[in-house]
């Protein structure tokens, strides 16, 4: 299985390609596709970096000129953020309450994953898992006889997996406080409502990533909110360790 691991967007990205694709396309072609996918993420990282004064979004928000590609991305992301804000009745917001400025970080990681996954598929790669900082998209299958498996870590118990999600053409995205501290803020103020993490499983990684952020901020009410979106389900883990889920819970025993 070909792999790529690289730092991007303040965390680590990982791509694993199925053995079948390595054999069908050749490892050289797979390597080339991985390289373009990595570039996609790196371009978006810089494009949307609010912390870098010379980034395209900093330039654009400051009234400067940027490329048409950048403007198209800003337009897409800001529209998506606006839709998510309305859909979540203001829980999702792109106005950082700490700085008062626009911050698209809640959407850009998923947006980047969607683009990089699309690039791999355009290069003929069918079976792969791409993940950035705990949000993953599983394309195709790991093997003819099994789908990809994504472990959902248990944020209340170190050293443990809460569940394993089997996924084919599905995103598995998690928001929570387990690793980077309290990085979730919401339009209704800081709210985690007794949850330690919120995982969303569904067809699109950008939507799943945003829904996980929203669901985490909503607390247990996030589960029916997510379920109102066709094809999306949740696995929420409370701070007391209880798992709440409307996804299939299949005992491994």
């Amino acid at each position: 299985m070909s792999r790529a691991v690289f730092p991007v967007m303040g965390t680590v990205a990982s791509i694993v390609v199925s053995r079948a694709d390595d054999e069908r396309l050749g490892t050289e072609a797979v390597r080339a596709a991985l390289s373009v996918a990595q570039q996609d993420l790196e371009i978006l990282d810089h494009r949307f970096s609010h912390y870098a004064p010379d980034s395209e979004i900093s330039t654009w928000l400051g009234g400067g000129a940027v490329s048409p590609d950048a403007i198209a991305d800003f337009d897409h992301v800001l529209r998506a953020c606006g839709r998510l804000r309305d859909d979540s009745r203001g829980v999702f917001t792109i106005t950082n309450p700490l700085t008062g400025s626009v911050d698209t970080a809640g959407y850009v990681k998923g947006f980047g994953l969607r683009r990089a996954a699309g690039t791999l598929q355009q290069h003929g790669v069918e079976g792969f898992v791409i993940g950035v900082g705990g949000d993953t998209y599983c394309s195709g299958r790991a093997d003819a006889d099994r789908p990809w498996r994504v472990a959902v870590s248990d944020p209340t118990r170190r050293r443990s997996v809460a569940a394993v999600v089997e996924a084919a053409d599905l995103a598995v995205a998690t928001s929570g406080t387990s690793e980077r501290g309290d990085h979730i803020w919401s339009g209704r103020g800081a709210a985690t409502a007794g949850l330690a993490s919120f995982t969303v499983i569904g067809p699109d990684i950008a939507e799943a990533d945003a829904y996980a952020t929203i669901g985490f901020a909503m607390g247990e009410a996030g589960i029916p909110w997510v379920a109102a979106h066709a094809g999306y389900r949740s696995v929420a883990i409370r701070t007391d360790g209880r798992i709440l889920s409307d996804a299939a819970l299949v005992s491994a025993a």
Binding site: R3, S14, W148, S153, T174
Partner: peptide, 18 residues
């Protein structure tokens, strides 16, 4: 438990996996 990726805690974990 067998898995190909982890959702929820992957700061340095990918390098760990690597």
């Amino acid at each position: 438990v067998a898995f190909d990726a982890i959702s929820g805690a992957t700061y340095t974990s990918e390098a760990y996996r690597e």
